[in-house]
Nucleic acid binder design. Structure first.
Lengths: 204, 204
DNA sequence: GTCTATAGACGGATAGAC
DNA sequence: GTCTATCCGTCTATAGAC
């Protein structure tokens, strides 16, 4: 192997080791020194691979999304009925959110980004694909709702309970089972199918 | 009026002028110099009123929540039917979220806070009250759902579409009307009452 | 490719004059 | 109460040796 391969490998290692840092602390509260230390390198070495902090951050987020969002499409067969596919997707998303706090927090940081340009890039190149998957699932449902609003609702219903995991423990009515992805997925699916109240006492 | 009143007034002015700063940029990316400049003071003057940056931030968030969360209880009469009260609350929350980006972003910063102690304080003393209001509304609904999960769902459904306002514009299917609080509130209420699909073609 | 060393700006916080 | 002046640490980024 030539040097080119080694260079690429180091670059990827920097990305992978930076992901949890930026996920936990966000852009401003992670210094290039922190990144370098996590990689066992010096700051100067990081600058050899990435022109500046902004480019590093953008690539970190994009890298994490490429890695993780594939898991959401597992088990989604075109042969399944629309509601079955949606249920599988919701369950997959809940499991990803429950397991992967890193992925979840990166989405939050993107939503909060105070630099407009950077946020636009991330929205258009990174988040859009995830949203598109949901949008396609929803349009197959023969729904009364606006597909766009419904897509947004589905993502919100699944992700936000896990985003606020720490906070949620302090809210009245909390029980540990609320942290289980299958419990939340079931709740969301029921809500989407029937609403919050029981209309058919005989059915289901 | 004595000096004590003047001191309290300055202190409150600092709080009010700091709110939009911390809301937009978060804890780490707002310096005491920024706060001082926004108030027309020097950093040393800020330290006369607040012992350190952390205390200032905590009081800023608490102050904003005291100011704004009262608006959510407008029009909520005990004489109304449970579903009417919920609809009013959802509408109020949607309007607050649509109008008041400052309030909305502060909630996001609290959820993302990487300092556990600070986050716990804010969750227990600031967010809890808001959640309690929803929880009480929900328990009056005679619902099939877990009240805790349903409360979380309601808050998510209303707030998150406005939190991601900038991002949402880049997602497929977006139309400007999706930004109107009444449109979203209607969508959420319909979802809660009936689910995403139409079960009663003859009714409603 | 990675290092040491450093420039230059900015951060939180304090001392002491007024 | 608010100021000026300052301490001291950390930040991004670069220059140049190896």
């Amino acid at each position: 192997m030539g040097q080119g391969t080694g260079k690429r490998r180091t670059r990827e290692e920097i990305l992978e080791l930076s992901v949890p840092l930026f996920a936990e602390f966000g852009y401003y509260d992670v210094s290039m020194r922190d990144v370098a230390a996590a990689c066992g390198l010096t700051p100067a070495a990081i600058y050899y691979h990435f022109s500046d902090k902004d480019h590093l951050y953008l690539e970190v987020v994009a890298h994490e999304f490429r890695e993780k969002s594939a898991a959401l499409l597992i088990d989604l067969n075109d042969s399944d009925a629309p509601w079955v596919r949606l249920e599988k997707f919701v369950t997959n998303l809940a499991h990803l959110a429950a397991k992967d706090e890193v992925f979840l927090r990166l989405i939050q940081w993107v939503r909060l980004d105070s630099e407009e340009k950077r946020q636009q890039k991330l929205a258009a190149h990174v988040l859009k694909d995830l949203f598109l998957v949901v949008h396609r699932l929803v349009t197959g449902l023969d729904c009364r709702c606006d597909p766009y609003l419904l897509s947004m609702s589905i993502v919100s219903l699944v992700l936000i309970p896990f985003e606020g995991r720490q906070i949620r423990k302090f809210m009245p009515g909390y029980r540990p089972e609320h942290d289980q992805p299958d419990v939340l997925a079931r709740h969301v699916i029921n809500l989407l199918r029937l609403g919050a109240c029981q209309h058919h006492p005989a059915g289901e």
